[in-house]
Design a binder for these strands. Structure first.
Lengths: 224, 224
DNA sequence: GCGCGTTTGATTGTCAGATAATCTAACGGC
DNA sequence: GCCGTTAGATTATCTGACAATCAAACGCGC
């Protein structure tokens, strides 16, 4: 007895909606038919269409506004990683791997950062401002926040969006041991950030990379 | 006039379900309460719970089996990227950024690869096998497949799981211009792969990185 | 006692219909 | 012409019902 029509109604619906977007060559922001219209077109109930659109909306593939309708969404990798980040199967990633991964992408972007710094002085300013604010605060929460911001800005300055998104993801996992940083170590941390900015501004990629690597790997010592 | 209750019921539900998973320390495969139970617990209708679970299921965060119930899912990045890959807004990611990102993570892992190669000879064998199969096929589809496999194996050999996952993601977007590689260029590509393997086996990280960079960046020339 | 089909209860899947909340656009007073 | 109001459209949520599916308990024959 074949029970092979396993494709559930709402899964058909998601496929058909995706199909619709592709075949009509819709761009982000373009309108989709209403839920009722889609239901009629597909010959299914409105509820199933809803389950499909809600799922797609979750990923950012479509957007819905109450009283307005559906439209093609602007995908935000950040949102996806946010939902994925908490998941148990990802929580078990070895902290050492996280650290090594961060070292690779953050030191890897430095050449790009230096290149762009040469043509855009605002990058230097932005980084320096974070370091300054760093120095003038003692609030733990704020320091963590600034630390994240510093490293994110670094990635952003490379102009490589995919790596920014990925960096965000890594930071989600990192969060938990960042809080274990002792007060005394923050002073060292500030100096380290300052040194990195200066080396970058001077175009010394190698030196900046060494300093950055040491800075991130300092977390490894807290893992025992 | 504050209309700040923006959090929709089903969004609360998704958060609460995620919360449930975390606070109960559930692992993939573990059972969740039934939809009805969840609805009662959260004080909302079963329908809203459904929309939440369907969205989460779409990402692979939870799984549902008819007649059985809900359970925590095994996240499959491949599935996510499959849904994401077609999306118009991702078709617009700057190809140059993709290439640069790949160069950074793939050359970045090479030191780790060499380290692990020294203690595990199976890595060399696996890479070499792919190159051999590469040489003996002419099927375009197969070649693309092997190319992906080669680069994935490289990342895997570093032992840095986060980067493997991220590499998978990048490959999805890369797909589309991989098909434009001309037959003639595949020969060059094979040689390049072979050279990388040899340099790695010899512990020459720098040389391997240069070759790998050139290999990936060769795609840039096809972008005009 | 054991093997095997059957039943049954639990659970998800799908539907229909109704009401609330919200937004857009048309309307109308001034 | 400007601005508040209204009306229609659309999504958001709920209720209640029934179908489909599955796993475990059941019972029958041996």
């Amino acid at each position: 007895m074949q029970t092979l029509q396993r494709l559930k109604v709402r899964d058909q619906a998601t496929e058909q909606i995706k199909q619709y977007i592709v075949s009509h060559k819709l761009a982000p922001g373009d309108r989709l038919p209403t839920e009722t219209k889609l239901a009629e077109t597909f010959g299914i109930s409105r509820l199933s269409v809803r389950e499909a659109t809600k799922a797609l909306e979750f990923l950012g593939i479509v957007q819905s506004k109450t009283g307005v309708g559906l439209s093609v969404g602007e995908i935000d990798l950040g949102r996806v990683t946010e939902h994925l980040g908490f998941h148990p199967s990802l929580q078990r990633v070895d902290p050492n791997q996280l650290i090594d991964s961060r070292v690779i992408i953050e030191t890897g972007v430095l050449p790009h950062v230096v290149d762009r710094m040469a043509h855009d002085e605002s990058i230097h300013l932005r980084l320096q401002e974070i370091v300054d604010r760093f120095r003038s605060t003692r609030d733990l929460k704020m320091r963590i926040d600034l630390d994240i911001q510093f490293h994110r800005t670094l990635l952003e300055s490379s102009g490589l969006e995919p790596l920014v998104a990925f960096g965000d993801l890594l930071h989600v996992f990192f969060q938990r041991f960042r809080e274990s940083v002792k007060q005394a170590e923050w002073r060292v941390s500030v100096d380290s950030h300052q040194k990195i900015v200066q080396l970058l501004a001077a175009g010394k990629v190698g030196g900046a990379a060494d300093e950055l690597r040491a800075h991130i790997e300092s977390h490894k010592e807290r893992l025992r």
